[in-house]
Design a protein around this nucleic acid. Sequence first.
DNA 1: GGAGTTTTTGCCATTTTATTGCATTTTTAC
DNA 2: GTAAAAATGCAATAAAATGGCAAAAACTCC
Lengths: 141, 141
Amino acid sequence: MNDPDFSRCIRDAGGRVTAARLAVLRCLAAAEEPLTPDEVLEHLTQTPGHVPDRVTIYRAIDWLSAHGLVRRLATVGRAARYEPVEDREAHAHFQCRRCGQTRCLPAPSPPLPALPPGYVAERVELVIHGLCAACRAGENA
Amino acid sequence: MNDPDFSRCIRDAGGRVTAARLAVLRCLAAAEEPLTPDEVLEHLTQTPGHVPDRVTIYRAIDWLSAHGLVRRLATVGRAARYEPVEDREAHAHFQCRRCGQTRCLPAPSPPLPALPPGYVAERVELVIHGLCAACRAGENA
DNA sequence: GGAGTTTTTGCCATTTTATTGCATTTTTAC
DNA sequence: GTAAAAATGCAATAAAATGGCAAAAACTCC
């Protein structure tokens, strides 16, 4: 995805194309893992160009999320993590219980459990909890 | 599960049996849904008997969690939610995107995705996002 | 391309959620 | 019952997120 694409996504969603939204979307798309709002800010700080305010990043993420361009993940850590909604394969997430790292795993969509009457499922999320390689090696450190 | 059981669980885990730990464990076990620490406090406030401090509830939950009696769920909402670790069937969780309600769903364990080398999986969590019956009905309200 | 309208931003303050330090109390072993 | 260790309560603090409002930016129309 390049910038014109990002701009069009935002425009198509009915919003204004602003530096903050572009930067946030670009940052999340470039990241290998889902990021927290503060991590997005950190990345943008280390990148040439305009750095939006922290509150603006929260609002940009909220907007992107409300318009389906970005997705909030269920996380165990304190801060919410977001990833871009792309036409990628369905995938799961791994969360390390020691360092909190969250990363994407290739995985097919699991079977959908039966819901109570009247409930509607919109998305299925699979989270694997465990230890990453580094934490496993250093657990006794 | 009754109180003597709770006491023994705590003792077996190598901790002291205190009013706060018992109350928190009893509360989580009695709840139909996973609760946040503040919800636990609220429940305990409405219950006859000693009401522990909020911080004590956090610490009791941390201890119970560290000793495998209680489990922290991956959530989309802001506050962490906990449920007792019992010998129940494996189950999934439903989260309503509108009201934030989290409830348990019967579901078999989904297949485990392949992990990167060195990674260890300890638990698999399945989260269904969507709308609960009430929110679906009242979405235009 | 410039004026006018609407949306978005930045800053400040505030709320919500969670954690830390330390003196006091409670639990447990003996 | 007493002593040692662990847990609690309170106050302060940190971390994560939100709300209000004036200033700035993006878009529309001509």
